Deep mutational scan, measured.
Amino acid sequence: TFTSIVTTNPDFGGFEFYVEAGQQFDDSAYEEAYGVSVPSAVVEEMNAKAAQLKDGEWLNVSHE
C-alpha cells in the first residue's frame, strides 16, 4: 500500500522519499531506493497529487 502526505518541513536527514512542488514522482528512483516496484496506477496518483503542490510544499511518499 502506497501513501503520501503533504509537508512544508521535509526531513532530508531520514530515509524518506519526497516530491518537490513542480516535479513529478520518479518511480524509477523510488524503486531503486526501496527495491519496490511501483504500479502505474500509483505513479499516476502520486503525479496528480504532486501537481497540486504549492511552492514550499513537498509530497512525502511511503509504502507498507
Rank of each mutant, 00 (worst) to 15 (best):
G22M: 06
A50P: 00
A21Y: 12
A48F: 10
Y18K: 01
A41D: 12
Y34H: 09
N60P: 02
V38L: 06
V38S: 02
M46V: 12
I5M: 13
S28W: 11
V38F: 04
Y18F: 09
A48D: 09
L53P: 02
V36C: 07
Q52D: 10
E32A: 14
G14F: 05
Y30F: 14
K49Y: 00
V43E: 01
A33R: 15
G35S: 07
L53H: 03
Y30L: 01
S62R: 15
T7Y: 00
F25D: 01
A50W: 00
Q52V: 11
F15H: 15
A21S: 09
P39N: 04
H63D: 02
G35L: 05
F15R: 13
S40A: 14
F12R: 07
D26K: 05
K49C: 06
E64Q: 14
E32I: 12
G14C: 12
A51W: 00
E45M: 10
G14S: 14
F2K: 07
E16L: 14
G14A: 11
T1I: 15
A51I: 07
T8D: 09
E16H: 13
Y18E: 02
L53R: 01
V42H: 03
G56E: 05
A51Y: 00
V6E: 05
F17A: 03
Y34S: 04
E44N: 11
G56M: 04
F25V: 01
L59E: 01
K49T: 06
A29L: 11
G13R: 09
G35K: 07
G56R: 03
A48K: 13
V38G: 00
A33H: 12
L59P: 02
F17I: 04
V43R: 11
E44R: 11
K49E: 05
I5H: 13
G56N: 08
D26W: 06
K49H: 07
W58N: 02
E45F: 07
Q23W: 07
V36L: 07
V38C: 04
A48G: 09
Y34V: 04
G56H: 05
I5L: 12
V61P: 02
T7C: 09
N9P: 01
E45Y: 07
D27T: 15
G56A: 02
N60M: 15
S4D: 08
Y34T: 10
E32P: 01
Q24F: 14
E32S: 13
G13Q: 11
K49M: 10
V6T: 07
F2W: 14
Y18L: 07
E64A: 13
F15S: 14
N9T: 14
T7K: 03
F12H: 09
A48S: 10
A33F: 13
Y18I: 05
A48R: 13
A51E: 08
S40P: 15
W58Y: 11
V36D: 04
S4F: 08
G56P: 03
G14Y: 07
F12M: 09
H63Y: 13
E16K: 12
T1L: 10
K54C: 06
F17Q: 03
D11L: 10
A21W: 10
A50Y: 00
A21N: 07
F12Q: 07
E44I: 12
M46E: 01
G35T: 04
D26A: 05
E64L: 11
S37L: 10
E20C: 08
F12K: 07
E16I: 07
T8K: 10
S28R: 15
A51P: 04
D26Q: 06
L59R: 00
F25L: 04
V6H: 00
E20S: 11
P39T: 05
Q24I: 12
D27P: 15
Y30E: 00
W58K: 02
E64T: 15
E20K: 12
T7I: 10
N47G: 03
Q24P: 11
A33C: 14
A21T: 05
F17D: 02
Y34F: 14
D55Y: 08
G14E: 08
F2M: 08
E44A: 13
Q24S: 12
V42P: 02
F15A: 13
V36R: 05
E45T: 06
Y30H: 01
E44G: 08
V38Q: 00
E32D: 11
Y30K: 01
E57S: 03
V61D: 03
S40M: 13
F2Y: 07
V36G: 02
A41L: 10
E20Y: 07
A21G: 05
S28I: 13
E57I: 00
V61F: 00
Y30S: 02
P39V: 03
N47T: 09
V19Y: 01
S40I: 13
F15G: 15
P10W: 00
E31S: 12
G13T: 14
S28F: 11
E57Q: 09
A51M: 08
V19R: 00
P39R: 00
E31D: 04
N9K: 12
N60C: 14
T7N: 03
S28M: 13
N47Y: 01
L59C: 02
A41K: 12
A51G: 09
E45C: 09
T8C: 09
S37V: 13
E45W: 06
V42Q: 03
K49I: 14
A21C: 07
S37N: 11
Q24C: 10
G35M: 06
D11H: 12
F17M: 03
Q24V: 12
T8F: 07
Q24T: 13
D27N: 14
V19M: 06
E31I: 06
E57W: 04
E57D: 04
G22E: 03
K49F: 01
Y34E: 00
H63P: 03
N60F: 12
K49D: 03
